[in-house]
Computed example of a mutant assay.
Amino acid sequence: MKSVMSNKLVISLYVLPALALILLLIYIPIVLTGYYGLTDWNGIGQAKFIGLENYINLVKDKMFWESAWHSLLLGIFSTISLIGYLILSLILASKIKGANILRKIYLVPMLLSSVAIAQLWAKIFDPSNGMINRLLMMFGVDNPPLWLADSKLVLYALFIPIVWQYAGFYIIIFYAALKNIPEELIEAAKIDGANPFQIAYRIKIPLISGVIKVMVILAIVGSLKYFDLIFVLTGGGPNHASEVMASYMYTEAFTKYNFGYGSAIGFGLLVICLIMTWLIQKLLSSKEDF
């Protein structure tokens, strides 16, 4: 068996199917997207090669950079929300009563589709009969906000269901990392007189710093390409106030049938995600990583 597994030809045969799938489903579409960005194409007829015109227009497109800024804001909000997820995970990992039930409750939003979540929160944000505005009116607010129709509030309103949707995902990963910390370290700290806050700040958080870095990358990059819930709730409106890069790409490609420019937007989104990932890794890297 060892001689077979050390055979390079056998290893190549095992790796080939996975490599073929990765090429077929990831790298070839990326190359094609970059190529279609060099064309003037409506998605049906013959594509006309126009060189870098779409990419030049993309750099000059104020709407693209505005949508990129909205995506970055969502990434910043999502990163800040990690603090709350981490605190909840620390509490759940501290052997409190009902922790098992609470973990299951936090996971419920992950079981729902983004479309279902969007429809649910559309009812909650409803200006006339929504739960939020009803509560505000009960407390004496005569003119509650139009959450999804106010260009100044819509991004903040959208952040609430996004945080709710992904809470279970981040909490369960933080919780699993915290439970992997040797119990002997915690007990030794307690014997030395450390309180729960000191144990969390001095021991637990430093020991899961690698997981925290990965979560920051996932939160920011995931927000940069976020699409489905925003598209269903607002469609990028009002007046492009909630337009993100992915929804702008969809609008150009599938609403205006400008697949060439839509592909350029998609390729630009990929480049921005790669740059942000590299920057985050550099900013969060420590001497131990080198």
Rank of each mutant, 00 (worst) to 15 (best):
D126N: 15
K213F: 07
Q119G: 02
I26R: 11
T255P: 05
V15S: 07
I26H: 10
L218I: 14
L38S: 10
V271F: 03
P145S: 11
A200L: 04
G168I: 02
A157T: 13
G140L: 00
A118G: 05
N258W: 07
E187P: 06
R134N: 15
I117E: 03
N195W: 02
W65D: 05
S286P: 01
G140M: 01
L218R: 00
L283C: 10
I96D: 01
Y175W: 02
I28H: 05
L32H: 03
G266Q: 08
L279V: 15
I101E: 05
D150V: 10
P29E: 07
A177E: 05
N54P: 12
V271P: 03
S285V: 02
A189N: 08
L82I: 07
I87P: 07
L74R: 03
F139S: 10
Y27K: 09
I101H: 00
I101T: 11
V4I: 13
N129D: 06
I50P: 08
I96W: 01
V10L: 09
H240V: 13
A177V: 06
K123A: 13
A188I: 08
M110V: 05
A177L: 05
A20L: 15
F174A: 03
N133H: 06
F174G: 07
N100T: 06
K95N: 14
L120Q: 09
D289N: 12
F159R: 01
L86Y: 04
W147C: 13
I162N: 11
N133Y: 05
